[in-house]
Design a protein around this nucleic acid. Structure first.
Length: 298
DNA sequence: AAAAGCCCCTGGACGC
DNA sequence: TGCGTCCAGGGGCTTT
């Protein structure tokens, strides 16, 4: 599910319900998700107060009052839902990102249920269990394997044409693979890479090295690409991310950016660029689907 | 060191 | 209705 805009949307939603509350009870129903959950997870979390919520790349960072950070990665299908403490009519809950409390899915995949000090219930559901959680002392975050090799935040000033060109210089991979690589730019995934390359008018199969001159300076393509990445992500964050197949009951606070896709999931449909007569194609690239317009992405 | 493949896991859509 | 195949927003690990 989640790339940067979706993770950011979930982070913001959780922030509203977690900050200032303490973990009272941790109902842990499995030993592991993708990886083993932390040793003595419940005991270590119980009684801790949530200070703040942050995000780095596709990780949600839940800062606790003992200097530790609960680091959460949602994988493909990880979701949080929240049931408010007292809700008439049986408590239908709060919507977080593309997630409704009654996820309409499978309680079998409710792997963790946190009871907070205000009585709200926060459930982590993850059908495929590609998600994971870890408790990391704040001081060790930077050097932690999760974070040590991560590339720049795309919405920060660290992502510049010069940076991208320098990282692309001499690389043999194609543009799609470069942008999917979390060590270069952290937080992009299949959807937003496809959309950014479309906006920049760049062929996903073109070599990444073409972003740089021989001396490693930014080519115009790098300038366009950086602008495209930033604009598509910023718009998606504003729209609350994208909601794909999990769209259940319509709800205003679900993600809306899926309605803005220019290429993703639009195989066989007309290119949306003004004046372009092209048709969106899908090709498997690096084991994943790439959607692009062969006419205007060159 | 970089690039390419395989793998993890479950569910939904589709064809027969 | 049932079964097989393909596909899915993640990325780690292994091999070349």
């Amino acid at each position: 599910m989640p790339e940067l805009p979706e993770v950011e949307t979930v982070r913001a939603g959780l922030e509203r319900v977690l900050v200032g509350r303490r973990f009272v009870r941790i109902d842990q129903r499995r030993r592991d998700l993708r990886f083993a959950l932390p040793e003595r997870f419940a005991e270590r979390l119980a009684g801790r107060r949530v200070e703040s919520l942050g995000r780095r790349a596709k990780y949600i960072l839940i800062r606790l009052d003992n200097g530790e950070v609960l680091v959460v990665h949602l994988g493909m299908t990880g979701r949080f839902s929240v049931r408010a403490p007292s809700r008439r009519a049986g408590g239908e809950g709060i919507v977080l990102g593309d997630y409704v409390y009654d996820h309409g899915g499978d309680a079998r995949h409710d792997h963790l249920v946190f009871t907070m000090s205000d009585g709200s219930l926060v459930t982590y559901n993850d059908a495929r269990r590609f998600g994971y959680m870890e408790l990391v002392p704040e001081a060790e975050m930077e050097g932690h394997p999760f974070f040590a090799g991560l590339g720049v935040e795309p919405l920060s000033d660290d992502l510049t044409p010069a940076y991208l060109a320098a990282r692309a210089r001499g690389r043999k991979v194609d543009l799609k693979a470069l942008l999917m690589d979390q060590r270069i730019v952290a937080g992009l995934g299949n959807i937003y890479v496809c959309e950014a390359l479309f906006r920049a008018g760049l062929d996903p199969f073109k070599r990444a090295a073409t972003l740089a001159t021989k001396t490693g300076k930014a080519m115009p393509a790098a300038v366009r690409l950086v602008a495209a990445i930033k604009s598509v992500l910023a718009e998606a964050v504003r729209a609350g991310g994208s909601t794909l197949r999990d769209y259940k009951q319509a709800d205003g606070s679900l993600g809306r950016f899926q309605n803005e896709f220019a290429v993703y999931g639009r195989e066989g449909q007309r290119c949306l660029r003004r004046g372009c007569r092209g048709t969106v194609r899908r090709k498997v690239q690096g084991g994943r689907s790439t959607f692009y317009c062969p006419v205007c992405q060159r």
